[in-house]
């Protein structure tokens, strides 16, 4: 191993740990979220160092990007409802009884012991040890795509991926259910520069998102990363109020959310015939089916992530029942 890279790794690892601690201890919540976003991006960088570019892309786009947007939106909402929108260092919750520092230290010591145990277990485990390497490279030619991660997500372990899309669906149903009739905090004023920026950047994002999806067959990228980037388009449209969800759009939105799940599950079942089981794509159609699934799943992911950001189900607030709900 060459030394400069080891030093880089050590510095990066140290920075990641420091940011993790800082994001939990800094007083200002806004700063905490920002530190968390930097933490996420540095983690993605570390994963690039570990030659996991797909994971790094997903973490940057979804784990940090979408999550960061969700956190900031929630922070904005909390400050709005508690009337502390203008205060820089306002906390989102009125603190209950403060936790005695003894409890905190006891917990920290407890977690320290766990860390120590986990670290020992980790050091005792085989390094660069057994894995699926041989199995994957053996099965790759039959998978229909060239990129191993895509092959795993959409073929070898496609069932997991279907269920992951179902998790997203469950989340959006739950969020709509939870936030029914909740009035929105006014969107922050973005200013003209922002509007212009959004207009400039939107087409570029669409291109990047589509490229990521398309590249997934051969190179790092794929449905989830592409979907997240396309969801950013939705976020921008929502933030700039270029698109305002209306009650009449609910039907279409529902269809967009379930599209990926339905097509994925339907294809999985339809290929099961003549001795084949679910998800067993016929060899000559594997690539076409995988691309079809990926494309439609991307649309669902983009729509779902944007809806998770938007939160409420768009309902007419004139409706009496909704007002009672609020």
């Amino acid at each position: 191993m060459n030394d400069p890279l080891v030093i880089f790794d050590l510095l990066l690892g140290g920075a990641i740990i420091a940011l993790a601690i800082a994001s939990l201890t800094v007083r200002d919540l806004f700063a905490a979220v920002v530190l968390f976003i930097i933490f996420g991006l540095l983690s993605a960088l570390a994963w690039v160092r570990l030659s996991a570019p797909d994971v790094a892309l997903a973490e940057a786009a979804i784990g940090t990007g979408v999550t960061g947007a969700l956190l900031l939106k929630t922070l904005h909402h909390l400050r709005f409802v508690t009337g502390t929108l203008g205060h820089q260092s306002a906390l989102s919750v009125t603190p209950h009884t403060p936790v005695p520092s003894g409890v905190i230290w006891a917990n920290a010591a407890f977690c320290g012991l766990i860390t120590l145990g986990l670290a020992v277990a980790f050091l005792g485990a085989p390094q660069a040890g057994p894995g699926f390497d041989a199995l994957v490279s053996e099965a790759m030619p039959a998978s229909g795509v060239e990129h191993p991660v895509t092959a795993i997500l959409l073929n070898f372990r496609a069932y997991d991926t279907l269920m992951e899309v179902v998790v997203l669906l469950a989340a959006v149903i739950a969020v709509w259910q939870i936030e029914r009739g909740l009035s929105d905090a006014p969107a922050p004023v973005m200013g003209e520069v922002w509007q212009g920026f959004a207009r400039l950047v939107l087409p570029a994002i669409v291109v990047v998102g589509t490229y990521l999806l398309w590249a997934g067959a051969e190179a790092p990228g794929g449905a989830f990363q592409g979907g997240a980037v396309l969801a950013a388009v939705g976020l921008l449209l929502l933030l700039t109020r270029a698109y305002v969800p209306r009650p009449g759009h609910r039907g279409i939105a529902r269809c967009a959310f379930v599209l990926g799940t339905v097509v994925f599950a339907a294809v999985a079942l339809l290929v099961a015939s003549g001795g084949r089981v679910a998800f067993e794509y016929p060899a000559d159609h594997a690539k076409a089916l995988i691309l079809l699934i990926e494309g439609l799943v991307t649309i669902s992911i983009a729509a779902t992530l944007a809806a998770l950001f938007h939160g409420r189900e768009p309902v007419a607030l004139r409706n009496k029942e909704d007002r009672n709900d609020t």
Binding site: D54, V55, I62, F132, V167, F224
Partner: peptide, 16 residues
């Protein structure tokens, strides 16, 4: 590549 796919799944599950 298998753990990579698992982590991507984990990230999506976590954001949900």
């Amino acid at each position: 590549p298998v753990p990579h796919a698992l982590v991507i799944t984990g990230i999506v599950v976590m954001v949900s």
